[in-house]
Design a protein around this nucleic acid. Structure first.
Length: 788
DNA sequence: GCCGTAGGACTACCA
DNA sequence: ACTGGTAGTCCTACGGCG
């Protein structure tokens, strides 16, 4: 028997002659697919001594065939703090698990774990580990050794298709694909029209174009096929056209097949033997967790934000015109740039996804379609398996509903006193919630009714100290690993591959660690625990409030606090450092208060129409001259550029120049400019996302009305669309006046002055003693002592 | 029927 | 389809007034 070594890339399974085999995609000198026989199973909490009787159970598969358990075993598993014996029911094929389980009148566990992932958890392998195995033909007889090493270099090929559709959206059965571009080691465009561009390869017809594309994929033989929105557009379209033209779209390795699938709410398109990597859902997740910040999730917007590069400007409606004109040079270039941008985004996001996959123990393709909650869940399942703990079941529908309807109390936010301040220090708790979970051993399994040596939470929940809980243990490991890695990072050249990989790992660890608290309080979580989640936030509130009290006792003025941060006014920087030290000496070992920064100047504003300060809204001038802005309209995408730009300039005038006169001048000039009617419409557009389909709204709104106008004009506006509209002159209500930017002809100056510019700047100018009238009409400053 | 406003729907932000 | 806390806009329903 041959002994071999290779990177473990992906797992799937096949059923052959009634037996189940895990398929392993392995990357060594060559990339191979090998088989490993393993039976699916689930666990039963029932009469262990009569386990053999389970073998007599006979039940029907979906197709009517009869089946029964293949074998039963007795296994010991931990439940909470005790050990219990379970019956392990071995099945013949994965599809038997749900049917046999339903025939068993006892509580069952671990019956809804995808088989390939079950293999990863049982073998304790991470994606991209190196395994040593004994091979006999196409079969793995034994897996001998598992080593974690850096992930292998994965080869990428990006692609993009263009379709011919003179009306509306392309129709698969009718509208042909006119171009396919790709970018890997080689790049190019395949088309059936001629172009002067060297990179365009001309073929006879659409059928040849598809065949040529398949050929190129085979030649390049990428590990990862990258597209943008390719799971819901390019690949299904390619598949449909192939069917129409009667050819096989053989994009996979080893006669791999294609399959549309769904993971949660996210659609995927599986290419067996390769990893299909759709940038779109990944960009959505990264937007959600704050890795990137974009206005909308188009290739153009994401590429600009992430790479600082834009697409070639060709509108979707123009594609068929360019094609018909016969001169396809520009179109080919456009298509190629799309593939190149997609490739660059793939290269940018792949390292992070690879690390997330390896940390969370979830194959890369599935990782790319996962939410952070699913990744945390996978990681916990892996370690529960290692610790021989029973994996909790997913909650039933009713309990999900109950959980959603009983939210837990969250963080504390201190009300700021509006004003302009100098010499501020911001301190924050590093990884507050993770450090609380670790310090107090918060876990559903360590929760006890009473007993000695317990951590008593402010909500009176008790957590045993006897054994480290699953969640605190895993979290501590992640946090520890991250701090080690951060040390290594300092030694490395920022341009090196090593640095990119390790910083991706650090980021993956951070994302995962920060998701644990949310996961504890997530209604669909397997490890949901109300007392645990409540205790985390309660301890958080306790720590931040105690910090505020102690700061005040030491004579600091505490301006503001939110969740894990405090804003102080100081006289000497040393006082702050000393205070921080004092606090840290009293904190549990894993918790730490850090200096976020010193800020020479900062501004807090009041809530609209009230004297009270506004929370989550402030601007700080850092020592290096940069301005840190939170919550203001200028960081929101649903305000017009004019308003945001004016507000930004006003804040800069006040914080950097310390000149309110300059601020006044900026505002007056902008009001003038708007009144003149000369402001370009794109400066006035307000962008809002539709989170529902246009038909399902209860109330009218400007964005909805604009969306309806778009639909009427033949454009698409649906759930998820970003609607950009300008408030025009025609109509009475704002909704009536709202025109989609694509159709807008004019704008209403009065609206922009009193609904955009003034609300955005008045909350700041009010702190300087100006009122709205004086801003509009050039009156004098009102009372109040001058600040500067 | 008009006016002003409280409250709800909705979005996007902070941590 | 990870959590809760928060500001703010626009619309709508409602009550007071005449």
């Amino acid at each position: 028997m041959k002994r071999k070594k290779a990177y473990f890339i992906d797992a799937g399974y096949v059923v052959r002659e009634g037996k189940t085999y895990v398929t392993l995609l392995l990357k060594g000198r060559k990339t191979v697919k090998l088989y490993y026989q393993q039976d699916p199973y689930f666990l039963v909490e029932g009469p262990v001594e009569r386990a053999d009787e389970f073998l007599n159970i006979e039940t029907q598969r979906k197709n009517g065939e009869l089946t029964s358990p293949k074998d039963v075993k007795i296994v010991e598993k931990q439940v909470g703090l005790e050990k219990k014996r379970f019956i392990k029911v071995m099945c013949r094929i994965p599809a038997d698990v749900p049917v046999i389980r339903q025939a068993i009148p006892f509580p069952c566990y671990e019956y809804s774990i995808p088989f390939a992932r079950r293999f990863i958890y049982d073998m304790q392998i991470s994606p991209f580990d190196i395994i040593t195995y004994e091979r006999e033909g196409r079969f793995i007889r034994k897996i001998l050794k598992i080593q974690s090493k850096e992930a292998p270099k994965l080869k990428i090929l990006a692609f993009d298709i263009e379709t011919y559709n003179p009306v509306g959206a392309p129709r698969e059965h009718k509208d042909p694909i006119i171009m396919i571009s790709y970018a890997g080691d080689k790049k190019g465009v395949i088309s059936c029209k001629k172009s002067k561009n060297r990179f365009v390869e001309t073929v006879k017809d659409e059928k040849q174009m598809l065949e040529r594309f398949v050929e190129i994929v085979k030649q390049e033989n990428p590990d990862v096929l990258v597209g943008y929105n390719s799971a819901t557009f390019d690949l299904p379209y390619l598949k449909a056209r192939s069917d129409v033209l009667g050819i096989k779209l053989d994009l996979g390795r080893f006669r791999g097949h294609l399959r549309e699938m769904k993971k949660g709410l996210i659609k995927g398109f599986e290419i067996k033997g390769r990893i299909h990597f759709d940038i779109y859902p990944i960009a959505r997740l990264f937007g959600f967790i704050g890795v990137i910040k974009v206005q909308k999730y188009t290739l153009d917007a994401v590429a600009e934000d992430v790479l600082g590069k834009k697409k070639i400007d060709v509108k979707k409606e123009e594609i068929w015109k360019l094609w018909d004109s016969g001169d396809i040079d520009k179109l080919a270039e456009y298509s190629l740039v799309d593939s190149e941008l997609t490739k660059a985004l793939g290269e940018r996001f792949l390292p992070l996804e690879v690390e997330m996959s390896s940390v969370a123990k979830m194959p890369l393709f599935q990782t790319s379609l996962s939410t952070s909650g699913q990744l945390v869940e996978s990681l916990l399942m892996f370690h529960a398996c290692r610790r021989k703990m029973i994996i909790p079941r997913r909650p039933a529908g009713e309990s999900v509903f109950e959980r959603i309807n009983a939210p837990i109390q969250g963080a504390f936010v201190k009300l700021p006193e509006p004003g302009i301040y100098e010499n501020m220090a911001v301190l924050d708790f590093r990884g507050l919630y993770p450090s609380i979970i670790v310090s107090y051993n918060i876990d559903p399994g360590t929760l006890v009714e009473d007993g000695e040596a317990v951590h008593l939470s402010p909500t009176n929940a008790k957590f045993s100290e006897k054994e480290t809980g699953l969640i605190p243990e895993v979290l501590d490991y992640l946090v520890d690993m991250r701090s080690k890695i951060k040390g290594e990072l300092k030694e490395l050249d920022k341009e090196s591959e090593e640095y990119i990989r390790i910083s991706a790992r650090s980021q993956a660890l951070k994302i995962l660690s920060n998701s644990f608290y949310g996961y504890l309080g997530y209604a669909r979580s397997r490890w949901y625990s109300r007392p645990c989640a409540e205790s985390v936030t309660a301890w958080g509130r306790k720590h931040i409030n105690e910090t505020i009290e102690k700061a005040e006792k030491q004579g600091f003025q505490v301006l503001y606090a939110d969740t894990d941060s405090v804003f102080l006014i100081y006289r000497e920087k040393n006082d702050v450092l000393k205070f921080m030290n004092d606090i840290n000496n009293e904190l549990p070992e894993k918790m730490e208060l850090e200096l976020e920064g010193f800020y020479p100047r900062g501004v807090f504003v009041s809530k609209k129409g009230e004297e009270k300060g506004a929370k989550k809204k402030y601007a700080l001038l850092a020592e290096d001259g940069r301005i840190k802005i939170r919550g203001f309209e200028l960081v929101r995408r649903d305000w017009s550029k004019v308003a945001k730009q004016t507000q930004k300039q006003v804040l800069e005038a006040i914080l950097i120049d310390g000149s309110k006169e300059k601020a006044v001048k900026i505002i007056r000039e902008m009001i003038q400019e708007i009144s003149s009617g000369k402001v370009p419409l794109e400066m006035l557009a307000i962008s809002t996302q539709l989170n529902k389909n246009p038909g399902s709204y209860e109330v009218k709104s400007p964005e909805l009305s604009a969306a309806k106008k778009m639909i009427k004009a033949g454009m698409t506006a649906e759930k998820g669309s970003m609607i950009s509209y300008v408030v025009g002159k025609k109509g009475t209500t704002i909704s009536e006046k709202a025109e989609p930017i694509e159709l807008a002809k004019d704008y209403d100056p009065e609206y922009y002055i009193s609904h955009q510019i003034l609300p955005a700047v008045m909350k700041i100018m009010k702190e300087l003693g100006y009122d709205e009238y004086s801003m509009r009409h050039g009156g004098k400053q009102q009372s109040l002592d001058s600040f500067f």
